[in-house]
Amino acid sequence: MIQYAAIILIVFGLYGLLSNRNIIKMIISLNIIEIGLNIFIISVGFVYDGIAPILTSTNSSSALLYVDPLPQALVLTAIVIGVGTTALGLALAKKIYSKYGTFELDEMGDNE
């Protein structure tokens, strides 16, 4: 069941986010949560025997059984926003590294 796989990914990501003190690992954990969420949203629209929601010369009628296109459109949005937030997070991480010389949150603050 793909939905349970998505939930497992979300749990992994959440655990990584809570237990890691390394900025890069935290960003990776956020991305894992995001991937899990995207898979979950896609799975909400799945229909057995449904085909991809694109009219082609072989699947030419709108009366055929399609999977739900709306979650796919929403996930398209979510992926792009995920790219943007990851880029912003990595830029912040780069700035932090150039200031403190480390990615570990615990080692920051003392040695200005």
């Binding site: 929601p53 009219l55 296109p69 459109a73 398209l76």
Partner: peptide, 9 residues
Amino acid sequence: AANIVTSIV
């Protein structure tokens, strides 16, 4: 649009 996802997006 033939691609229904595109028609939504």
